[in-house]
């Protein structure tokens, strides 16, 4: 019971805040043309589902996020393993990947628009570019921090290189690679939604852009809330996946 108390209090505070907001708007303290009534926001949800095809938009955004994240996983793990395999290459290129990870690539979205046109491909490429560096860095870290004693065990059992890789190196590096994948999917989702909003194309991000341009305030607020909830569920799912994977190891 006492363990559940603080989170329950947190939820209660948020609900209380929304009720206060409702009262403040009805009393005219907060301008209804800036913040619509929370009840109106809730009421606009069925309309969003029916008229704005929220379900299909979910599909588009998730599809783009998954494509970018998985592409980053495949390319990033391959690059990371290659860099780990040739130490000279690693020393030459790893700092540049660290720089890439620190660089706000999404700012270059007009450039990607020119390169790939105003299409889903542009969104996927930007998300992929932002998600790649963490996978590369985490893959290198995963293989570089394997305990030497594990490799010694492999040697003493006279494993072939393929066996060593399949039975020792890969399983030992996997948790760290999954951290990379988790980061990649988070970065991909942020960039996909952000770019959809900025270029007014595609799934959930476009919904917000369109509704705000139509000055549909309850709809805009509701759709922003929806996107936040979807992102939170997505992060929770990834957290759960990582914990599940770590428990199995």
């Amino acid at each position: 019971m006492s363990r559940l108390l603080p989170p329950a209090f947190g939820v209660l505070c948020i609900v209380a805040l929304l009720c206060l907001l409702q009262l403040a708007i009805q009393a005219g303290i907060v301008d209804v043309y800036i913040v619509p009534l929370p009840t109106d926001m809730l009421a606009s949800l069925p309309r969003l589902v029916e008229e704005e095809h929220v379900i299909r938009r979910f599909g588009v955004t998730f599809g783009e996020t998954l494509s970018a994240g998985l592409l980053a996983l495949v390319v990033g793990v391959a690059l990371g393993m290659a860099l780990q395999h040739w130490p000279r290459m690693r020393r030459a290129f790893e700092p540049w990947f660290a720089l890439l990870a620190a660089a706000p690539l999404v700012m270059a979205y007009p450039l990607f628009l020119v390169l790939f046109g105003r299409s889903s491909l542009t969104i996927i490429v930007i998300a992929f570019a932002s998600a790649l560096a963490p996978v590369v860095l985490k893959t290198i870290e995963g293989f570089a921090t394997i305990r030497p004693v594990l490799i010694d065990v492999g040697h003493s059992l006279r494993m072939t290189r393929a066996q060593e890789f399949r039975l020792i190196l890969l399983p030992a590096a996997l948790p760290e690679i999954f951290v990379g994948l988790r980061l990649a999917l988070i970065f991909a989702l942020i960039n996909v939604v952000g770019v959809e909003f900025l270029i007014n194309l595609g799934g959930l991000g476009q919904l917000i852009s369109e509704l705000s341009e139509r000055y549909d305030l309850p709809g805009t607020w509701a759709s922003i809330g929806l996107v936040v909830i979807v992102s939170i569920l997505f992060f929770l799912l990834l957290d759960g996946g990582e914990r599940w994977l770590r428990k199995r190891h």
């Binding site: 917000i208 922003i224 996107v227 936040v228 939170i232």
Partner: peptide, 14 residues
Amino acid sequence: GYLGPTPKIILFPL
């Protein structure tokens, strides 16, 4: 922690 990584730019219309 959960609001932190959501894309903030979507709040821009508000």
